[in-house]
Design a protein around this nucleic acid. Structure first.
Lengths: 138, 138
DNA sequence: ATTAAATTATACCAATCCGGTATACTTATG
DNA sequence: CATAAGTATACCGGATTGGTATAATTTAAT
């Protein structure tokens, strides 16, 4: 039930870009120095964020990265899922075949997994409540 | 943000014991066959559950395991934390020294980590809402 | 054009965690 | 005292994590 280090870095980097304002280009070197994030690792993370269109990348000299969207349109969930993949509390909540309790009662009717699904929904909607516009107001 | 396989097994095994009723002793062999859980792995999990006094173990011939408490007093959180350790969404939420953003703004004042703390609280209280008495009603 | 500064792609690596197993020991019942 | 249970410890292979290396590509400025 823990975020990866990459997701933590991603949140900080996106907040950093949000502070500069949507569209303002900053290069990775500057960001990783300011935020104390290993550069090559940040580059990898940024590629994932660029693929999901949360940030935009600009190649070549004077290139860098910029927020692709209004901070109000980016939530904690967006960034976390871009880096760590979808929020899934229990294996069988994605793939019922993973549910190795095959004795009669199927995954669908299992009370525990029903409860865990509720927990998962709660987490996802909580993460969706926080936009980066909210995080800027501090 | 995913439960371990061990925690999933633990939830199922505790629900199994809850169905038998508090105090009823069942041996690991029977449980692992019924619930399709690898026996040695279940034994390891049960030791952790016994240490946190969720279940009681009985050694020797005719030994086994029984629920140590009223199912209404055992929550999803209790079982998950017994097996996976405390619910911690972000490293620095346990250990501020882990917070490697040291540049001026401390972990305490970091907006992201404040939000993640709120998320964590939400998860924990949701997991506390479900007791095994609830799960029996189905 | 050339060069320098930036991202991209691919692949690699060590360390840790995860899921599970093995061996040897201890305890209690009949 | 034999047998059937749990206990303790330690091991193991594979996957994931966190991070690095190398080489290629793109772009701006000169």
């Amino acid at each position: 039930m823990r975020l990866s280090q990459a997701a933590d870095y991603a949140l900080r980097a996106v907040l950093y870009l949000a502070r500069q304002g949507e569209g303002t280009i900053v290069d990775a070197q500057t960001i990783c120095e300011d935020e104390k994030i290993p550069k090559r690792f940040l580059l990898k993370i940024f590629r994932e964020l660029a693929q999901t269109r949360i940030i935009e990348s600009y190649r070549g000299k004077n290139g860098g990265y910029a927020l692709a969207l209004d901070p109000a349109k980016i939530t904690l969930r967006d960034v976390i899922e871009a880096v760590d993949g979808p929020i899934v509390v229990n294996r069988c909540l994605i793939d019922p075949a993973e549910c190795n309790k095959i004795n009669g009662s199927s995954c669908r009717t299992c009370k525990i997994h029903g409860a865990l699904f509720d927990v998962q929904q709660t987490i996802v909607s909580k993460l969706d409540e926080y936009s980066f516009a909210d995080l800027l107001k501090s």
